[in-house]
């Protein structure tokens, strides 16, 4: 029987929602037990949140000053130690998990299954390759530890009705000092989080400038949506990098995605394939985005967005 260790992601003392999605994927493998591990300098409040995730047997905490920041070189040796006795190690496929999990896998001497979309069996998974243009089924040898990252857009977050016990774990691993955290520049925004929001409005190169992007923010606020962007919009400096949606940005699955002034390049579409309803607003009726949009509207965004606001009313 399988035992799965899920690595908790957290920032500023709060558990990241991606963790509960990784637990969902773990549950799909029908294991005997799912444990969550929290590595932090102050893990208690994070562990308390993780303990509520449905399906979790227990939460393990590793409290060390060195764990104040999520440096893969520091965390990986501890997780590799803690992984003894587990058949699987799962992490969310966020920049945190992508950075950390392969280093853990290497220490365990195994390859990794990246971006798990579906669990077909305890050792069989589906994952995307070629920017999602092909989906492969992979089988991991029964004898080796399965290290996997979980494509968060493919999994709902497990509910929070649980109350698993929290256990402190001391791992005896020598930690390197060759890698040091300097700082994190966080985008500060009162808008919903791009990765978890049910509605997202994204702007592309068609928006034209940083100043013009106000029209996107204004419309998003009107409908309570998070704001995203194409890579072209980020590269042109209209918005910061953490807003990028797509193959090399965030992969999201909102109920409603509204693409404004975005042409619909493959690398952008990869990021929104799982959205419930895709709306495209573009002045070019031939834009590829209309091939996949559920609802399309051809026209000038600077005219249409104010009209939409007026039509929505209140």
């Amino acid at each position: 029987m399988s035992k799965i260790l899920v690595i908790a992601e957290h920032l500023d003392g709060k558990l990241n929602g991606a963790t509960a999605r990784a637990v969902s994927a773990a549950s799909a493998a029908k294991p005997e037990a799912i444990d969550v591990i929290v590595l932090s300098d102050a893990p208690d409040s994070i562990a308390a949140e993780a303990a509520q995730i449905d399906g979790v047997r227990k939460v393990l905490t590793v409290a060390r000053a060195e764990n104040a920041h999520a440096l893969a070189a520091v965390l990986a040796p501890q997780i590799a130690r803690a992984a003894a006795g587990y058949t699987h190690v799962f992490a969310p496929s966020t920049t945190f998990g992508k950075d950390l999990a392969p280093r853990v896998a290497a220490l365990l001497g195994v390859s990794q299954v990246s971006d798990v979309m579906t669990v077909e069996g305890s050792h069989s998974f589906k994952r995307p390759i070629y920017a999602g243009n092909a989906i492969v089924t992979v089988e991991v040898d029964a004898a080796s530890t399965v290290v996997a990252t979980i494509r968060t857009a493919s999994w709902p977050a497990a509910a929070s009705n649980g109350s698993a016990p929290v256990e402190a774990l001391s791992v005896d691993a020598a930690l390197p000092s060759h890698t040091r955290f300097v700082n994190l520049q966080q985008g500060k925004s009162d808008r919903p989080d791009l990765q978890g929001a049910p509605k997202v409005v994204s702007g592309g190169r068609g928006v034209g400038s940083k100043e013009n992007f106000e029209i996107i923010y204004k419309f998003a606020d009107k409908i309570g949506a998070a704001v995203g962007a194409s890579r072209a919009a980020v590269d042109a400096g209209y918005v910061p990098n953490e807003m990028q949606v797509g193959q090399t940005g965030k992969i999201i699955a909102p109920e409603l995605y509204i693409a404004v002034g975005i042409s619909g390049a493959i690398q952008h579409l990869t990021g929104i394939k799982d959205a419930g309803t895709i709306v495209a607003i573009n002045k070019d009726g031939e834009a590829p985005i209309f091939e996949i949009a559920d609802i399309g509207l051809v026209g000038d965004l600077f005219k249409i967005l104010p009209e939409l606001e007026a039509a929505i009313g209140q």
């Binding site: 492969v136 089924t137 992979v138 991991v140 609802i295 051809v298």
Partner: peptide
């Protein structure tokens, strides 16, 4: 120790409707 056993095309999103305004 990881074998790829099958390749499939991703599920297609079908073309939707166009609205006029």
């Amino acid at each position: 120790h990881i074998k790829t056993t099958h390749y499939a095309a991703p599920p297609k999103r079908s073309k939707g409707v166009m609205v006029k305004d």
